[in-house]
Design a protein around this nucleic acid. Structure first.
Lengths: 227, 227
DNA sequence: CGTTTGTTTGAAGCTAATCAAATGGGGTGG
DNA sequence: CCACCCCATTTGATTAGCTTCAAACAAACG
């Protein structure tokens, strides 16, 4: 077991940067589209960071419907909450999805022995919370149009491409299950945006935002009543 | 400054239980219905635990609609994620809501100096994540009936009352904004459940679950297609 | 006791789910 | 390389459910 400084108020004693320690434990694995990264019933052996590609964290409900709880994009960490069992299944949504896996036991031991490492974990977890809260706001939107608008803005921000070009790393079905609407509705919403000239398609899953202000809240129509 | 054991694998050395430390910092405040606990623009000075009563964490969207992101009930901790700014406003939903406030600076300093305290914070944050994920599943439900069913089961589980009696600590408007449906729809859903004999009202906001199986998924009608 | 706020009920309109089917694209095997 | 098939996507028609507008009713508060 490696030694980690426990001295307080003297972080300079630390032999290694916590992030560097974390990365030194990384176990890179790549997955093909639709491949499972972990199942909801699997024992919790790793914590994860998505390096490239994309993945969906979801649950399949008794009626067969699928609800995507979180969408993992490059840079996202997941499975970092100290829960002792998975509640969800995670699968890659595109080929060549690269995931860094950090052995759970090592991570947890480090967090409990190195103050700075523990702090790092707390910060990473905070990012997960932000993502979940943003998701709740998106799902809470009343109309599908607002959901799709918000979704596109989110993608434009989170995807590593240029800020106005979007290459969706997922199918329409995934988008539908992410926004809790039907596939047909997603498709129609995209078509409507295309016809309005708000976005322009360069491929089925490739598009470019032409009129960003129109996405911001649907300001081009149904004007605001309240101040 | 108090000394805290850093020994691992020997928690008995610790002079104080981290939870006890946390509670020793508590600053109890009580709020009346609709009173603000903190605003989204306030500086982050405290972390919180709801002792009794209830509160809503929400945001008001530009169109005036309100989206409740989290419902705080007795025992719930909130504002524990190490975010440097609030994203939401929190208000009590009933009179005599009691909240324990823990000075942020002290908490954070403790977390960064005491391994066990840091661990405690991580565990509390995990609980917040669980709650948010559960919320996403609820919002992702297709029909209002499923949302209401899930809501009632959630309340029955989280409220301190007997497991089948529910005293809603919030108005129908709050329920509506929590589930992202209109007030009228909430009211109609309750009426429908009453008429089916699934629940029985003992007051406008007091009810008792009569047929719990009917709430589990709406199994009494629209049967399952898939296995 | 009157006013305000919260809750319920009614009627109309519209959005989105559902059912159904056509189109398009990617990959595979011949 | 082409033809075919499978799956993803789009489009159409119908229907169910929810929002909206409106108003009655109930409850809390001063």
């Amino acid at each position: 077991m490696q030694y980690v400084s426990v001295r307080r108020h003297d972080q300079s004693w630390a032999p290694l940067d916590p992030l560097a320690i974390l990365e030194s434990l990384a176990n890179l694995t790549h997955y093909h589209s639709q491949q499972e990264i972990y199942d909801r019933n699997d024992p919790v052996l790793y914590r994860y960071r998505l390096v490239s590609g994309a993945a969906r964290k979801f649950t399949t409900q008794p009626d067969g419907r699928r609800q995507i709880v979180d969408l993992l994009l490059p840079g996202d960490l997941f499975g970092f909450a100290p829960l002792h069992e998975h509640s969800f299944t995670v699968e890659a949504t595109v080929d060549d999805t690269l995931v860094a896996r950090y052995p759970c036991a090592r991570i947890d031991a480090l967090a409990e022995s190195d103050l700075r490492f523990g702090r790092l974990i707390r910060e990473l977890t905070a990012a997960e919370i932000s993502r979940l809260q943003a998701r709740i706001l998106l799902l809470g939107r009343m109309t599908t149009r607002e959901k799709i608008n918000g979704f596109l803005l989110e993608m434009a921000e989170r995807l590593p491409n240029g800020s106005d070009s979007i290459v969706l790393p997922m199918s329409r079905y995934d988008v539908a299950d992410y926004l809790a609407v039907s596939v047909e509705t997603v498709s129609r919403a995209f078509t409507a945006l295309k016809q309005r000239g708000t976005i322009k398609f360069t491929g089925t899953r490739q598009m470019r935002i032409v009129d960003r202000t129109a996405l911001d809240d649907g300001s081009d129509d149904h004007h605001r009543w309240h101040s």
